[in-house]
Design a binder for these strands. Structure first.
Lengths: 250, 250
DNA sequence: TCAAAAGTGTTCACAGTACACCCATGC
DNA sequence: GCATGGGTGTACTGTGAACACTTTTGA
């Protein structure tokens, strides 16, 4: 509906900057939003209510504004959709293939975000026609968004093996069986409960609370919460070893 | 010297795409190039021969062309500078802060590359006034390029702990002491040679050759090369455990 | 023969794994 | 009291760390 001005990338006289473009170029962010409902790992997508591709599923995205960074735009887009601030979010990858957007050339900076579904449900913006899909039963997405999601899944698994990332998907209080079930959903694998408990508790990152969740079993399972003081300190030395506690030279 | 056209980001009528920008925007790549000379880990930078910031050190970069992806632009820029194709290269991060470039708004997609310095020396393009600096004695770089380098160093250390990345910095034939010295340079740490040898050989990625390097010691050290058949296969299961060899569910 | 660097062997502590067992509770 | 899921104990295995030791060779 709006004008799209012709964009020209800078063309310079010096050697290094001699490449220019006469093509229009759009500059967008897209968010891969993961959530966990206690059973499955899910992805939040929206349904386009306009042409082209009306009715198709898509990641939430938006264009980057004047005086706004990509991070700023991603935070804004997430806030508009979920009503939530301060979500875990990180830049995933920038997609630049000239023909990736079939309508016109668009560069997309992709972010992935982790959400506690409980919190989210209270503030959802229905304007976007959002829906959660189990991560293994995703619908077709527009453009190359499915590739974004695949990369995001990979990165989530990769990082969660080394850093205490998955707590972002859980409520403030959670039980060990819930935590284990989340890890199992993410890695599509089963873990031994004894070993899982010891491994997670050995990080010293969890604080045992006095009350129990009695909904999911007769005996009830103790709630835990994350020790926020230790959270940032141990972010880089969580499970597997990652450089940071190396023997220093000299 | 060339015209810079006003760029307007798309402004749309629908909810998701209502943000627009009236600002000019440039779209560039910058390369963080690491090399190893047998002693130290080094960074390749160029000296600007034109204003603004003439004489200042900078990463090699360039603008992204019409019908060119960012990867394509990065490959092209690397080729122009080093004469080399097929270098190890990966996207690092995209920098988008509105004020990061003090001249005009520029988005930079940063790539990091690994080079065997021997190969490079034969084909260097002196037009750029390139220079290698030891990684711990870097000069001041223009704009936010120093932050790029810091992030790249972090990522190099992170990935090299898990993947067989550092071989890209060595010649095709290398000795275990050389390899160890490289790891020590990257992590600024000292490793026990016995444990180092066993650890690296346990990856089954190295093939022992029949000849020795006699330049660096009286006894001489056997050369090894990378088993290329196994290289790609083991890229994700090199040293530390990274998801991929998990117990499967069902 | 001695120094220097390559390469091997040995011991120990600890982390990961498999699996058996006990516990608390609702029905 | 018994089935169900939470939680603990234990024995075995493999890996990583520390460090002593042997080998080769040039000077």
């Amino acid at each position: 509906m709006e004008l799209i001005e012709t964009v020209k990338l800078k063309s310079d006289s010096n050697n290094m900057r001699r490449y220019s473009s006469q093509k229009r170029l759009l500059f967008a962010v897209d968010c891969i939003i993961f959530g966990y409902d206690g059973q499955e790992l899910k992805l939040l997508v929206i349904q386009r209510s306009f042409e082209p591709f009306k009715g198709k599923w898509s990641l939430v995205g938006g264009f980057i504004g004047e005086n706004e960074s990509a991070e700023g735009a991603a935070v804004r887009v997430l806030k508009e959709l979920t009503g939530l601030d301060g979500l875990y979010m990180e830049q995933l990858h920038t997609f630049t293939a000239p023909e990736r957007d079939t309508v016109e050339r668009t560069v997309s900076i992709a972010y992935f975000a982790l959400i506690d579904i409980q919190k989210y449900k209270q503030q959802i913006n229905e304007d976007y026609h959002p829906a959660w899909f189990p991560i293994n039963e995703l619908p077709e997405l527009i453009f190359d968004h499915s590739a974004f999601v695949e990369l995001a899944k990979e990165k989530l698994r990769y990082k969660a093996a080394l850093h205490p990332l998955l707590f972002e998907l859980l409520p403030a209080k959670f039980t060990m069986p819930q935590l284990q079930s989340l890890y199992q959903a993410v890695y599509n694998a089963e873990f031994d409960k004894g070993n899982f408990n010891r491994k997670l508790l050995s990080t010293k990152l969890l604080v045992k609370l006095k009350d129990k969740d009695k909904l999911n079993s007769k005996k009830g399972a103790f709630y835990y919460k994350v020790d926020n003081k230790k959270y940032s300190a141990s972010f880089n030395s969580f499970l597997n070893f990652v450089p940071g506690n190396l023997p220093k030279k000299d």
